[in-house]
Write a protein that binds this DNA or RNA. Structure first.
Lengths: 190, 190
DNA sequence: CAAAACACGTGACAC
DNA sequence: TGTGTCACGTGTTTT
């Protein structure tokens, strides 16, 4: 519209606005980051801490869940699976590029003072949960919070506290290697 | 740290850098926005077009999917158990007011053929998690999903699947009692 | 004009 | 050494 000679009609409130807009923007950023870490906390598979990766992993996880639901629905209806068995495998697989790609096992241990964060994501094996928990116990780590998911891979995220005077004895790297070996992997973790 | 002479060691490349960093930042922003609209596209329920709302809706949707999976598992099993239903639910209620008791340990096991839901909430004890997981393993229950919280009390919610041919061997009540004893409680669980 | 959401360029930091 | 990511404050647009 016809602004009167003042091209500063957008800049004229430079003194009054900023503090308000600034705080609003800060709150907005905080909300968004909170939601982001919230999303990260419920997605078992986290390849990286990138915002982009978090979203990507969340998307993958959702697809995975949808796939799971479909298979569950199918299994539900396939009471007559017997006859299908002989036909199976002919042209059923042949997924181009999906979850087939084997991801390298992920073992991460982050130690901060008395708090230890553990993140494991690897192929599922029988007894893996038990041996992992047992190892944690043996290392003097009390599980404070833990989320486990075994839909496709074995995924464990835990935050532990030091049980006794173990804090100076072992490093995060020690914990990591011990868990790695416990999980049945031979060599050294990357 | 206290660099003395050259405080410009960070500003010296003001002329050379910006265009590159600028482009990188643009690409990053684009990638993030792409992922965001991707997420928005696969989430059916979209309350608003806000970035924050999109993430929130995505989170809700994921929880919804997880819940769906549980109910699907149950429904699948319910089909085979319709005939058994007539025997249950006779004396199930009778919980008028129990808030007076400080900490009634809670042990609940709900078994439907291949799916078993376990819920434990009791006072924390050292080694309780390990013994519980160990017991589950011994009972032939594979933990599919699990959330553990040990802040004040010990709280465990898990959904398991039958590992092998244990399904007919033990009942939900058996599992419950076994877990109860494992947790260090003497008598019989109510 | 206001309140909220977004896009932008920049400095800082990590690998 | 640089390349990528994040937080920040600000300008611009939308409600």
């Amino acid at each position: 519209m016809g602004n009167v000679g003042e091209k500063k009609n957008k800049i004229r409130k430079v003194e009054g606005q900023p503090s308000k807009n600034l705080m609003a923007e800060r709150r907005r950023r905080k909300r968004l980051n909170d939601r982001l870490s919230m999303l990260r906390s419920i997605v078992p598979k986290i390849s990286k801490m990138d915002r982009t990766s978090i979203l990507g992993d969340a998307i993958d996880y959702m697809k995975e869940l949808l796939e799971k639901i479909h298979t569950l629905r199918e299994d539900d209806n396939v009471k007559d699976e017997i006859k299908d068995i002989k036909f199976v495998g002919n042209f059923k697989e042949l997924k181009p590029n999906e979850a087939l790609v084997k991801k390298p096992p992920k073992f991460e241990v982050e130690r901060r003072n008395e708090d230890t964060r553990i993140e494991i994501c690897c192929s599922a094996k029988p007894g893996l949960l038990l041996s992992t928990v047992s190892t944690l116990e043996a290392l003097g780590l009390d599980v404070q919070q833990c989320v486990i998911s075994c839909f496709s891979d074995f995924s464990l995220q835990a935050s532990c506290s030091e049980a006794r005077e173990h804090r100076t004895i072992l490093s995060g790297e020690d914990v990591k290697q011990t868990l790695f070996k416990t999980a049945g992997f031979g060599g050294r973790c990357l």
